[in-house]
Amino acid sequence: MDALLIGISLLDIWVHIEDDEPQRRAAALLATAALSLRRRLPLPAFLCALPATLVSDAVFATLAALYALASLSRSRVLLVVCALMFAACDITWWMWPSPTFADFSDSSDLINVTYSLATAAAPVFLGQLVQARRELSLRLAEISQAREHGRELLAQSVLAKERAQLAREMHDVVSHQVSLIAVRAGALQVGSQEPMAREAAATIRRLSVQTLEELRHMVSVLRAAGSRPTELTPQPSLADLQRLVDTSGIETELHTDLPDALPATIQRAVYRTVQEALTNVRKHAPGARAAIRIQLAEGTVRAAVTNTAPTRPALLLPGAHHGLAGLRQRAELLGGTVIAGPAADGGYELHLCLPLQQTR
């Protein structure tokens, strides 16, 4: 745009100023050069371009500078004064030492004065219109942003109500039932005479207490809707794998040689995969043995969980069948894959592959 305006101004100089008029040419060239300052210093640019209107007919640069001033300035008085200055210079023919002024008694000069005033008013009105349009666009953007913010607040309010209702249900129903399980398991542990039954009751009681603690933490998180972000539970890592295996109630071999400095997302994905695999073994393959092998090879974390065929019939337990789907989604988010299926010996196997480089 700068190059285009300067080019048109130079063409205006070439058309209206002869070669033997160096003073007028210098004033017009100064006005052309002032166009480069019209955005940062619109008023000085207009004042530098004004002498060209006084001494010549090359007025394009002055009009462009006046338009820039009108599109950036909020002072109506300043714009009126500048427009009158342009009209006064336009109707004055400066010829040193005797300048010629318009004669208002002459009808032709009066027409010229009217034309000069209209010429000065045009860039002022156009600049003000562009300024109003620009401000209107900004206001519309602000309104849209405020409306979007209002929708987000409404969604958060609805979500907070749903979370509060869910917290009440978990506290009133689930926590009560898990507490009852822990109490009954404790009574069975104390009253039973068989060692295996007492051990099973102790395991049930320990898992019930742990589940109850996690439920209470989740209830507190759900009730804290709208406050600062809170972790749902303390996030597990590879250091918790051995405890997970020991409390699974399954005869399991664990082999791992992963370094401790793996990203937290990788550690959580491996832990959740092993946890889901052991849960499936416990539900669908009672009496089976499991083997867990985790290693880092060629920049890829590989975890394999296999189990033998079940030795007794599986109990019918409720389930939503979302476990493996959730593992696959978690792995895909980290650029990895999960493959699961029956093994040749009648058991089951699950393989997790996670590229280490993509998660950093």
Results as ranks from 00 to 15, higher is better:
residue 310 P to C: 08
residue 284 H to V: 05
residue 30 L to W: 01
residue 303 A to F: 01
residue 256 T to Y: 05
residue 332 E to R: 10
residue 56 S to W: 10
residue 285 A to C: 04
residue 250 I to D: 03
residue 208 S to D: 12
residue 289 R to P: 01
residue 154 L to T: 04
residue 285 A to K: 09
residue 1 M to E: 01
residue 25 R to F: 15
residue 350 L to Y: 10
residue 117 L to D: 00
residue 99 P to R: 05
residue 1 M to F: 00
residue 122 A to E: 02
residue 190 V to M: 13
residue 344 A to G: 07
residue 116 S to T: 03
residue 344 A to Y: 11
residue 292 I to A: 04
residue 315 L to G: 06
residue 188 L to N: 04
residue 191 G to P: 01
residue 76 R to H: 08
residue 335 G to M: 03
residue 135 E to W: 06
residue 75 S to W: 07
residue 36 S to W: 00
residue 101 F to M: 04
residue 98 S to G: 02
residue 119 T to A: 07
residue 130 V to Q: 14
residue 249 G to T: 07
residue 299 G to H: 11
residue 143 I to W: 03
residue 191 G to R: 14
residue 130 V to R: 15
residue 197 A to D: 07
residue 214 E to T: 12
residue 125 F to Q: 10
residue 244 L to R: 15
residue 296 L to C: 09
residue 183 V to P: 02
residue 347 G to P: 06
residue 143 I to D: 03
residue 323 G to W: 08
residue 266 I to P: 00
residue 335 G to R: 05
residue 46 F to D: 00
residue 31 A to W: 00
residue 233 T to P: 01
residue 68 A to E: 00
residue 182 A to T: 10
residue 33 A to L: 06
residue 228 R to K: 12
residue 71 S to R: 15
residue 260 D to W: 06
residue 115 Y to D: 02
residue 319 G to A: 04
residue 18 E to I: 11
residue 356 L to M: 10
residue 141 A to L: 09
residue 125 F to S: 09
residue 39 R to L: 01
residue 354 L to Y: 07
residue 277 A to V: 11
residue 136 L to K: 13
residue 136 L to G: 13
residue 224 A to L: 06
residue 226 G to D: 13
residue 355 P to F: 10
residue 217 H to R: 15
residue 120 A to C: 10
residue 145 Q to C: 03
residue 63 L to K: 01
residue 219 V to M: 07
residue 276 E to D: 13
residue 114 T to N: 02
residue 232 L to C: 07
residue 242 Q to L: 14
residue 360 R to W: 09
residue 62 T to H: 00
residue 144 S to I: 03
residue 203 T to N: 13
residue 14 W to I: 08
residue 261 A to P: 04
residue 208 S to G: 15
residue 39 R to K: 09
residue 231 E to P: 07
residue 79 L to K: 15
residue 64 A to D: 00
residue 29 L to E: 10
residue 33 A to S: 10
residue 213 E to A: 15
residue 85 M to N: 11
residue 138 L to Y: 05
residue 273 T to N: 15
residue 77 V to W: 11
residue 99 P to Q: 08
residue 43 L to K: 03
residue 244 L to H: 08
residue 171 H to A: 14
residue 70 A to W: 00
residue 298 E to T: 07
residue 88 A to F: 12
residue 234 P to L: 06
residue 108 S to T: 09
residue 176 H to E: 14
residue 273 T to R: 10
residue 328 R to I: 08
residue 155 A to R: 10
residue 222 L to S: 09
residue 331 A to V: 04
residue 146 A to D: 05
residue 75 S to T: 09
residue 87 A to D: 12
residue 91 I to A: 12
residue 190 V to F: 05
residue 211 T to H: 12
residue 352 L to G: 01
residue 87 A to G: 12
residue 330 R to D: 04
residue 264 A to Q: 15
residue 265 T to G: 08
residue 269 A to N: 02
residue 326 G to L: 08
residue 99 P to C: 05
residue 342 P to D: 05
residue 99 P to I: 02
residue 60 F to A: 00
residue 238 L to W: 12
residue 201 A to W: 12
residue 277 A to M: 11
residue 32 T to V: 00
residue 349 E to S: 13
residue 65 A to E: 02
residue 140 L to R: 13
residue 272 R to L: 11
residue 55 V to F: 07
residue 207 L to H: 15
residue 157 S to T: 06
residue 327 L to K: 03
residue 147 R to S: 06
residue 356 L to S: 07
residue 36 S to P: 00
residue 102 A to M: 09
residue 329 Q to C: 02
residue 126 L to S: 15
residue 224 A to M: 08
residue 178 V to G: 11
